[in-house]
Amino acid sequence: MDPTPRLELPADLPADLVLPSTVEGTAVHELVIKKSRFIARATHVESVEEADAVVAAVRKELWDARHSCVALVVGQRADRQRSSDDGEPSGTAGVPMLEVLRHRGLTDVVVVVTRYFGGVLLGAGGLVRAYSSSVSEVLDRATVVAREPRVEVVLETDHASAGRLENVLREWCHVHRAVFATPAYGTGVELAVLLRPRDLASYDQLVASETAGGAVPVVRGWQVSDIPA
């Protein structure tokens, strides 16, 4: 019979929570279509206000361009979305760009595609394809970061046992893609780990085995962590 679990997941952690991914830093890519230059820039942001600042900076830098079209998705659940055609025919730039972000399952990202007109009209269909391709290709070059919930579990131990336990826990974290936090030293030693919800029971069993059941870790809460793909 399996031992009775000593730890429970935080009550406010939704079951089977799946979060959109994001991008790291900024990626830039240029596409030339019928002499028009499309310069795409995908940037990680944490808010709509930060996205607006990125857009303003791009438009200031590339002030002589005819259009700088925008698509952005922000929020843990990708619930804040916006787009702009910036003077292109309605529906030919911002919305197609936004659809690419949705299809990729991304959030906390703003994409600006700046167009320098090359003298050849592309037509509505050509513009849709050009702006969509610009976003797709810059995202192909971006570093995508997965987002997953992580449960914070804290173990209190004495100084004499801390070194051995730290080595054991670090090895377990490496195997289970968990994060071992910097130990906190006081009258005792606090060892904290950020782990995937499904690994909670395994971690609890490890601690019980290594301490002969004498130490019981405590679930402190949960947070969203970025995990490089």
Score class of each variant (00 low, 15 high):
residue 2 D to P: 15
residue 5 P to A: 10
residue 5 P to S: 07
residue 9 L to H: 08
residue 11 A to Q: 14
residue 12 D to S: 13
residue 15 A to H: 13
residue 16 D to E: 15
residue 17 L to P: 05
residue 21 S to K: 09
residue 22 T to Q: 06
residue 25 G to A: 02
residue 29 H to G: 00
residue 30 E to A: 13
residue 30 E to S: 15
residue 32 V to Q: 05
residue 36 S to F: 10
residue 37 R to Q: 10
residue 37 R to W: 07
residue 39 I to E: 07
residue 39 I to G: 00
residue 40 A to R: 06
residue 41 R to V: 13
residue 41 R to L: 11
residue 42 A to C: 08
residue 43 T to W: 10
residue 44 H to K: 10
residue 46 E to R: 15
residue 47 S to R: 09
residue 48 V to C: 02
residue 50 E to G: 07
residue 52 D to K: 09
residue 52 D to T: 05
residue 53 A to P: 01
residue 54 V to A: 03
residue 56 A to L: 12
residue 56 A to N: 05
residue 57 A to D: 15
residue 58 V to L: 09
residue 61 E to C: 00
residue 61 E to R: 15
residue 63 W to Y: 14
residue 66 R to V: 10
residue 67 H to K: 12
residue 68 S to N: 13
residue 72 L to R: 11
residue 73 V to G: 02
residue 73 V to R: 08
residue 74 V to M: 06
residue 76 Q to A: 15
residue 81 Q to M: 05
residue 84 S to P: 04
residue 86 D to Y: 06
residue 87 G to S: 06
residue 89 P to M: 12
residue 90 S to H: 13
residue 91 G to A: 11
residue 93 A to L: 05
residue 100 V to F: 09
residue 100 V to E: 09
residue 102 R to G: 11
residue 102 R to L: 06
residue 103 H to L: 08
residue 103 H to R: 14
residue 110 V to C: 01
residue 112 V to Y: 01
residue 113 V to E: 00
residue 115 R to C: 09
residue 115 R to K: 08
residue 117 F to Y: 15
residue 117 F to I: 10
residue 118 G to T: 04
residue 119 G to W: 10
residue 120 V to E: 13
residue 121 L to D: 11
residue 121 L to K: 15
residue 123 G to Y: 02
residue 126 G to R: 02
residue 128 V to I: 14
residue 130 A to D: 08
residue 131 Y to S: 03
residue 131 Y to D: 02
residue 134 S to P: 07
residue 136 S to T: 14
residue 136 S to P: 00
residue 136 S to L: 11
residue 137 E to L: 14
residue 139 L to P: 07
residue 140 D to M: 02
residue 140 D to E: 14
residue 141 R to G: 14
residue 142 A to P: 01
residue 142 A to T: 01
residue 143 T to R: 15
residue 146 A to S: 15
residue 148 E to Q: 15
residue 152 E to S: 10
residue 154 V to C: 11
residue 154 V to M: 09
residue 158 D to R: 12
residue 160 A to C: 00
residue 161 S to R: 15
residue 164 R to W: 08
residue 165 L to D: 05
residue 165 L to T: 05
residue 167 N to V: 00
residue 168 V to R: 11
residue 168 V to C: 03
residue 168 V to I: 14
residue 170 R to P: 07
residue 172 W to N: 05
residue 174 H to G: 10
residue 175 V to S: 04
residue 176 H to L: 01
residue 177 R to A: 14
residue 178 A to P: 04
residue 182 T to M: 09
residue 183 P to H: 08
residue 183 P to L: 01
residue 186 G to R: 06
residue 187 T to E: 13
residue 187 T to Y: 06
residue 190 E to C: 00
residue 194 L to Y: 15
residue 198 R to D: 13
residue 199 D to Q: 11
residue 200 L to N: 04
residue 201 A to F: 12
residue 201 A to K: 12
residue 201 A to E: 10
residue 203 Y to N: 02
residue 204 D to M: 00
residue 204 D to L: 01
residue 206 L to G: 05
residue 207 V to R: 03
residue 207 V to H: 07
residue 210 E to V: 08
residue 214 G to P: 04
residue 214 G to T: 09
residue 216 V to P: 00
residue 217 P to D: 08
residue 217 P to H: 04
residue 229 A to D: 15
